[in-house]
């Protein structure tokens, strides 16, 4: 199966083509240029260089969040446009699950902790355990405070492999940790379109028009309105 993966949920953007789990090509750009400008040219160039076309692709996959609201929408809007034009299904995968594949080299039984800096003193996070050469999910995607996350990881008493743009911050909060902490090297911290392809291979495709971003957070206006109506700050949605 030929999968085109698209990842635009944070500062870096990437597009990748995988065939039967093997990476054929990947374009990755970690610059300050907007994904709105760079993402589609990356896909166009990648296909052109491989002398292939969108028609040769079996599945288009995209990271659907959590992450930058705007970044996610750029990726999903692009995929919706492609799939609508091609009459093709899409596959939306969790940004955190796709990122967990960055920890594939971690030994079996160790914990992969994916954390993106969600600001407001929180991480977007999910925990996975390496088993049989694959990350297995231990909890749903969520927005969680650094303090709470550190407490949870301590309870597992396993070696931890940290990935994501919040991994350095997470590393610094785990100072009394008993096990081994491995902070992924810089290029392996970022989410990649390859990870999106790997995660998509495990999931069922869906009609592209039903693809929805996963924000894990209400908009600021909704939060403020809830706070006003209910007289307190609402709990973060998981």
């Amino acid at each position: 199966m030929m999968i085109l993966g698209i990842e635009s949920s944070a500062k870096a953007a990437s597009a990748a083509l995988c065939h039967e789990g093997v990476l054929i090509a990947q374009y990755f750009q970690n610059s300050s240029l907007t994904h709105s400008r760079t993402l589609l040219p990356m896909i166009e160039d990648l296909l052109k260089n491989l002398e292939t076309s969108l028609r040769d692709i079996d599945l288009i996959a995209v990271s659907k969040g959590p992450g930058s609201f705007t970044g996610i929408r750029i990726g999903i809007s692009a995929v919706k446009g492609l799939c609508w034009a091609l009459d093709a299904p899409a596959c939306g995968v969790s940004t955190l699950e796709a990122m967990a594949y960055n920890g594939l080299s971690a030994p079996s039984g160790s914990l992969i902790c994916c954390c993106m800096d969600a600001r407001r003193e929180q991480f977007y996070n999910a925990l996975f355990e390496m088993q049989d050469g694959k990350p297995h999910r231990l909890c749903p995607d969520r927005a969680i405070s650094a303090h709470e996350l550190a407490g949870e990881i301590n309870n597992f008493e396993k070696d931890v492999f940290l990935v994501g743009d919040g991994s350095h911050l997470c590393y610094n909060t785990l100072d009394n940790f008993k096990g081994n902490i491995i902070l992924a090297p810089e290029p392996l911290r970022y989410q990649s379109a390859w990870g999106v392809c790997m995660a998509a291979a495990q999931e069922k495709p869906q009609p592209a028009d039903e693809l929805l971003p996963v924000y894990l957070r209400l908009s600021q206006a909704e939060r403020e309105r809830q706070a006003k109506v209910f007289g307190n700050a609402p709990a973060e949605k998981d």
């Binding site: 709105s36 809007s77 692009a78 995929v79 446009g81 492609l82 609508w84 034009a85 091609l86």
Partner: peptide
Amino acid sequence: IGALLVGVNFAKSAAFAL
């Protein structure tokens, strides 16, 4: 800007694919 980006990225991809 956030609203425009949805239409622009959908339109670009659809025109490219078609």
